[in-house]
Structure formats: C-alpha cells, structure tokens
C-alpha cells in the first residue's frame, strides 16, 4: 500500500504533464529566473487555477507594488479575473513591513498572522530576493519560513530573482521541495526564447531538460519537448 502524494493543477499548460500530473500539495517551490522570464505570471496563473478549483490563494508582494498597479499591469491577462481578488485571491504588500523590520521574525509573525487567518491552499511570495537584507539570519529565515509554509498545508511558490550568471539562489533552493528555472536566450534573429526547466521536484519523476515556453495574454504555455 503506497502513499499517494496529492498533486494540484499548476494552471500552466504543459507543466503538469512534466510533473506526474501537478505540483505536490503541500510543498514549497522556488521559481527562479532573471527579470522578464515570467515568474510573476507563473505565480498568478497558479493562483488563478486555484481560484477556478475553489481554493483560496494568497499573493504576497515584497516589491512595493499596490494592488491597483498590479491589476493595471495584469489587466490584459485573460486567465486572471478581477473578481478573484479579495475573494479567492487575497493580495498583500509586505514591502513596507520588510523595510521597517529590525528582525526577520517581525515579517515571519506577520506572515503567520496572514496564513492562520486565511488558511490558504496556495501561496505566492513574489519575491524572496528582498529577504537577503536579513543577511545575518538568512538561513534561519529561510528555514523558519519553510516550516511555517509546510505547517499551513499550502503549496507555496517563492519567486527568486537571479542575474544571468547565477542559475538560482542556492540557499533558497536547499530549503524548498522543488526548483523551477525560467531562462531566456537570444535567438539568431535578435529576439528572445524563454525556457522552463524542472530542476528538482521531490517525490516526482519529472521530465528533465529545458523546454520552450511562450508567454502571451493567456499566460505561460510550456511546449514540452521543444528546446
């Protein structure tokens, strides 16, 4: 008699087929990539899928973006209905708190308050890169966040900014269950191709390698097998 890991739909066409049917629930997932590779879009698609499935999602911005600006920038995305916000998807901006916090535990407690009140099934923290300001306690912070997010019984996406020379934030990658890499490369015509790679997914016999990824107003689509 085998234990069957619960998997939830990612909302990204093509991705669930690479991961045995979906993302493990509960788990923590790092989505890492340079600017413009689709990290926030992926997170929003993940929450929109949850909203369609009757789940509650929490989007925490650490980038000082109010919900008004987020809604404006995402208004052309077909998968994200405005009525999700405040209902199935709760948006919160933690940037001010992170700036003012003397200790990372202040942020941890605020997150705990949010999670225990809402009890969401899906969480996106966009992005964790700003937590590097707590550099003396960074490992403790990552560990404590990881424990809290597991306890709340949610699947959490943490986005992480990287520069093109660094594939992923190594310290974050150690504490999460899965790592998705988003990259882009110049084409011979001077355009850019975007790629998605499942680098690690615990408990999952996932498809390896880089796969071509398209982003348009319908969100991200992974073209599995197309490198």
């Amino acid at each position: 008699m085998k234990y069957q890991l619960v998997r939830i739909g990612s909302g990204i066409p093509g991705l669930d087929g690479m991961t045995q049917g979906g993302l493990p629930f509960p788990s923590t997932i790092l989505v890492a990539g340079p600017a413009g590779t689709g990290k926030t879009t992926l997170g929003l698609q993940f929450l929109a899928q949850g909203a369609r499935d009757g789940e509650t999602g929490l989007f925490i911005s650490t980038l000082s973006e109010s919900i008004q600006w987020m809604l404006r920038f995402t208004s052309n995305l077909t998968f994200l209905k405005k009525e999700y916000f405040g209902q199935q998807i709760v948006y919160d901006d933690f940037s001010g708190l992170i700036k003012q916090a003397k200790d990372y535990r202040d942020v941890l407690h605020a997150l705990e308050e949010k999670l225990t009140t809402l009890m969401p099934q899906r969480v996106v923290i966009d992005s964790v890169t700003v937590f590097e300001r707590f550099k003396d306690d960074y490992r403790d912070l990552l560990y404590d966040f990881s424990v809290l997010l597991k306890d709340v019984q949610a699947t959490t996406i943490l986005t992480g900014e990287v520069d093109p020379t660094e594939p992923y934030p190594v310290e974050v990658a150690h504490v999460v269950d899965s790592v998705l890499l988003l990259t882009s490369s110049l084409t011979t015509e001077g355009g850019r191709n975007r790629h998605l790679e499942v680098l690690k997914m615990r408990g999952t016999n996932h498809v390896t390698g880089r796969h071509l990824m398209a982003i348009d107003r319908n969100g991200i689509t992974v073209q599995v097998g197309m490198g």
């Binding site: 619960v6 939830i8 629930f25 009757g54 789940e55 009890m119 099934q121 709340v152 019984q153």
Partner: peptide, 10 residues
C-alpha cells in the same frame, strides 16, 4: 477534499 482538511480539523 484535500484542501479542506485543515479547515475541517479546525
């Protein structure tokens, strides 16, 4: 449903 279990406990 898996997603309801924590709330059901509570």
């Amino acid at each position: 449903r898996y997603s309801l279990i924590p709330k059901l406990n509570l």
